[in-house]
Design a protein around this nucleic acid. Structure first.
Lengths: 185, 185
DNA sequence: TAAATACTTTACCGATTAGTACAGTATAGA
DNA sequence: TCTATACTGTACTAATCGGTAAAGTATTTA
């Protein structure tokens, strides 16, 4: 039989988009099979734990992406203000200017939240602490840095919801610009 | 047979909590039957359109609640600043200090978003315009009022997500206090 | 080239899904 | 009290769900 996919890692971004579009429960194995081009046999070969393992793998990939492209730059860049600015740009790109939802945020509101509690919690908590660290290095005291970081993450998540709900991608870009202003002044 | 529920309207709040807890797809008819104490026969008697009609009825009830308790007071109260302050209190109560999610926001991220596009859109759009109207009557120009209103609704939705994700109800109260400050200064 | 491993296809399982049909019972109005 | 309507319980459908089993075919390793 023809080999369709060489690497398990190639499937994960496809799974991510499926979960974004249909949610965890709505992402049936038939949809997954259709969009990945893989039969059930192959899917359970790569993910013996079934849908739950697929979603966990997606969340893990999201986590490493943010660690590499958002959290670590915030913690380690020489210029913290440039790193914060860079974060805002990376976020706009990642969420396709508000046309793409945040899977972790969606899971947090979904009934699967209990199955992925820790991964969801870490995502937001890591983001907050990394951003607060950059803000502190930019001159804010600990309390103010934590407050500003929390506000920014809130604005991102809320902006994604409203942007999606109203069908206005520009809303998200506006919210990000506002958030960046508040972080840098 | 014993009559269990007198009014269709009595069931809707129960349905709302079920959808909040399990999502639209996750709210199976067996769960709904169990929590409402109604058999399928009764459920389809009250809601011939099935789950979709149930969810639509819940969204409609939410809309009228916000119209009566949030939007209209914002539009019509003599003292707009007091009305804004009242809105913040009502919102904290309604969402149980962040322990309760916003069903409309959850639907906006879910795969049912396409089935209830208009009701979701109206919810956020009505909220924005009502709050902007109050802000204008409080002295802001149209552009600034619209900007502040959008920011506030964003903070509410984002606050609910983070509060839920991190398991910190105090986060939502903090976000609401911040939002109120920004609206009233 | 031969054997071991990696991947795929197909067929199947029991459980659950939303929804329908309909007979039966309770209630309300005349 | 009789009748019409409102409501409920039970049984049923066809479809789909996530998951399993196992035989078959590639690909890699020795």
């Amino acid at each position: 039989m023809a080999r369709t996919v060489a690497e398990r890692t190639d499937i994960i971004p496809v799974l991510a988009e499926i979960f974004r579009e249909h949610g965890f429960e709505g992402a049936s194995l038939s949809i997954i099979g259709e969009k990945t081009g893989l039969g059930k046999g192959s899917l359970y070969h790569f993910f013996p734990g079934g849908k739950e393992e697929m979603a966990a793998a997606v969340l893990h990939e999201i986590d490493t992406w943010f660690e590499n492209n958002v959290y670590r730059p915030l913690r380690e860049a020489q210029n913290p203000r440039a790193a914060i600015s860079g974060m805002c740009g990376a976020v706009i790109d990642y969420f396709h200017s508000g046309r793409r939802i945040c899977l972790v945020g969606a899971f947090a509101l979904d009934n699967v939240r209990d199955r992925f509690t820790d991964q969801i919690k870490d995502y937001f908590s890591d983001w907050k602490t990394a951003l607060a660290a950059a803000l502190q290095r930019a001159g804010h005291d600990e309390a103010k840095a934590s407050e500003l970081a929390e506000e920014a993450v809130i604005s991102i998540q809320g902006g994604l919801i409203l942007s999606r709900a109203l069908g206005e991608p520009t809303l998200f870009e506006r919210a990000m610009k506002k958030a960046e202003e508040r972080l840098l002044t």
